[in-house]
Amino acid sequence: MKTVIAVLGATCLSLAAQVASAADKPTDPQIAHIAYSAGVIDVEAAKLALSKTQNPAVKAFAESMQKDHTTVNEMALKLAKKLNVTPENNTTSQALTDAADEKRAELAKLDGVTFDKAYIASEIAYHKQVNDALATLLIPSAENGDLKRLLETGLKLFQGHQQHAEHVAADLK
């Protein structure tokens, strides 16, 4: 599990080098918890953005994040129930959540265009980080086929979010 923290915590490190031994592979209940936590984090960020932004493009982006991540998490809960899997809290989920809490506190102090730019930049970095973790670690580690497929759909969705954020960022300049 140390590997997962490294991947999620430091995007600039080579991911290939991070995915070390099979012993470090997260289990399905842990993967489910990490993916779910990642969704909750982005919904919280979206709520903050919706309480602050006056920019229509930023608002549309945040609304899309809130809806899409809520929907994926509902799908994840439904799947967990079907598979009789209880998502298991773990150090990676905790590290993700702690980092997000810090980031949100930082963003909460900003306003106007400064907030918009910082929020969108943070969303680009965040989705990049989660996508890297999904592609190089979480998807390859998933044992259950249904879970793997849901994560693959999640990856496509989050890659779309990253590009959406990049488009919004380009227009904010």
């Binding site: 549309a60 899309s64 899409d68 496509k156 779309g160 979010h161 590009q163 959406h164 488009h167």
Partner: peptide
């Protein structure tokens, strides 16, 4: 393309 998911 899709504005919400420009990879579509």
């Amino acid at each position: 393309y899709c504005r919400f998911h420009p990879n579509m």
